[in-house]
């Protein structure tokens, strides 16, 4: 078992504990051991607190990274926002002057950021440490025939020079991870669009989601394959709103990838919290019955 410091962030442990449950069930089956990171705070988020004060944002992020350095472990994240903040911090603090500045703040609480820890989203981790074949081998309930519209979101891939996950113009990581479950990934025409959650107006996210959902529907996808809890909420709550606004009927259930993985590995449908979603992926039940 390879050990990693688990940074669950804010949204998943509080709003979507079933996602965390699925992660804790599925990663050990791929040879990955989760070590809890005591004393961690919000990453902090790359949209709101970063907008207030980038230096404080870096200082808090560096404190979180220093907790993992104490354990001598790399950090694994399950949220694209946390991945963005912590990866950008590692990148920016390669600059010696900035690192000194941040370390002077950390010295107030007896901490130091050394720049020794790597940050990886669990999707990247599973690809690089376990591999697609190991995912396939862990599947006991192949999701054959399930059409999954892939939604990458923004911060898993971009900025690519910092995230170093995949080619943002033609990525394959999620497609291959979905294929490894026996399911069929669908790249709909507007796959590259953003969920719009960070935007502080109504019209931009609404029109963007509308365009995106229309191309998902055109491909007859049964579920939306998600990798970010923010995108997930935006699609679960958002589809109702968009349906009303545009007087059309959208309702493709979003499913967080690691819940789908845990399900394919044999976790019962009822244990994965799908019933708490606005749009429930009941289409998955057919694999349980067979």
């Amino acid at each position: 078992m390879k050990r990693f410091a688990f940074f669950p962030g804010c949204l998943i442990p509080t709003m979507h504990p079933s996602m965390e449950y699925a992660i804790r069930q599925s990663l050990p089956r791929l040879g990955i051991e989760i070590v809890d990171l005591d004393g961690a705070s919000c990453c902090p988020d790359p949209i709101y607190f970063k907008s207030k004060d980038k230096l404080s944002w870096l200082a808090v992020a560096a404190r979180n990274l220093s907790l993992a350095e104490d354990l001598g472990l790399d950090v694994i994240t399950n949220c694209s926002g946390c991945t963005a903040t912590l990866s950008e911090t590692v990148h920016l603090l390669q600059d010696e002057e900035l690192r000194k500045k941040i370390n002077r703040r950390l010295a107030r609480i007896g901490r130091k950021y050394k720049g020794k820890t790597r940050v990886r989203h669990i999707a990247t981790l599973v690809r690089d440490e376990a591999g697609y074949d190991a995912i396939s081998e862990s599947v006991v309930r192949p999701l054959e025939g399930l059409k999954v519209a892939i939604h990458y979101g923004c911060h898993l891939l971009k900025p690519s020079s910092i995230m170093q996950v995949d080619n943002p113009d033609d990525p394959e990581v999620l497609e291959r991870m979905v294929t490894a479950l026996g399911a069929t990934p669908v790249r709909h025409r507007n796959w590259y669009l953003c969920c719009g959650k960070a935007c502080q107006t109504e019209e931009i996210p609404a029109n963007m989601m509308h365009d995106l959902l229309r191309t998902v529907d055109a491909e007859n996808a049964e579920i939306l394959g998600m990798i970010c809890p923010t995108c997930f909420s935006q699609f679960d709550y958002g589809q109702m709103k968009i349906s009303k606004m545009f007087e059309e009927s959208f309702g493709v259930p979003p499913v967080y990838y690691f819940q789908l993985l845990a399900y394919a590995q044999g976790e019962p449908y009822d244990k994965l919290g799908f019933d708490r979603q606005r749009f429930k992926p009941e289409c998955l039940k057919r694999f349980e019955e067979s």
């Binding site: 079933s18 004393g39 961690a40 004060d53 230096l55 808090v60 703040r105 609480i109």
Partner: peptide, 20 residues
């Protein structure tokens, strides 16, 4: 769900990082 409880964040430490 059998998940460990979330503990409060040590705010005394976090607050000290905000000051320029």
């Amino acid at each position: 769900l059998g998940l460990p409880p979330l503990e409060p964040v040590p705010m005394d430490e976090i607050e000290k990082l905000f000051e320029p």
